[in-house]
């Protein structure tokens, strides 16, 4: 199994960025829901509020739908890409043997943000 490389190929890079988007989305939506009420309660309390909140809501549903679809596709693409790499890589060069050990150590360090 190939170890985690330092730089990612296109497919997994894309998937990571979509993952970042998935983390940002809740924060963004919370701000869009909460801030207008703090700033201009009179504007979003009546008929204007009905429009704003329901349009925002529909937008959020569509955003989550599109994001999840893209993430699922990106995951499938990443799996395909890693399978292709695994198939194409019969014997890694002997000179590169010391690098996986470093990569391994780095990944383990990254897995435990607060080691106890």
């Amino acid at each position: 199994m190939p170890d985690k490389p330092l730089f990612l190929e296109r497919a997994s890079f894309h998937r990571r960025r979509l993952g970042d988007a998935a983390r940002v989305l809740p924060v963004l939506s919370a701000l869009l829901v909460l801030l207008p009420v703090w700033w201009a309660p009179a504007l979003v309390s009546f008929a204007g509020g009905v429009l704003w909140f329901f349009l925002l809501w529909a937008g959020l549903i569509l955003a989550v739908w599109a994001l999840h679809r893209a993430l699922l596709r990106a995951e499938a693409a990443t799996i395909r890409a890693s399978e292709a790499v695994a198939a194409g890589q019969s014997h890694p060069g002997t000179g590169a043997q010391s690098h996986p050990a470093q990569g391994d150590a780095r990944r383990n360090a990254g897995d435990s943000p607060d080691a106890l």
């Binding site: 998935a22 809740p26 939506s29 959020l60 989550v64 994001l67 999840h68 993430l71």
Partner: peptide, 14 residues
């Protein structure tokens, strides 16, 4: 209804 919607926008990782 909006509270749960906010939680579900984080469904993927949360």
């Amino acid at each position: 209804y909006l509270g749960p919607t906010l939680v579900f926008t984080g469904a993927w990782w949360g």
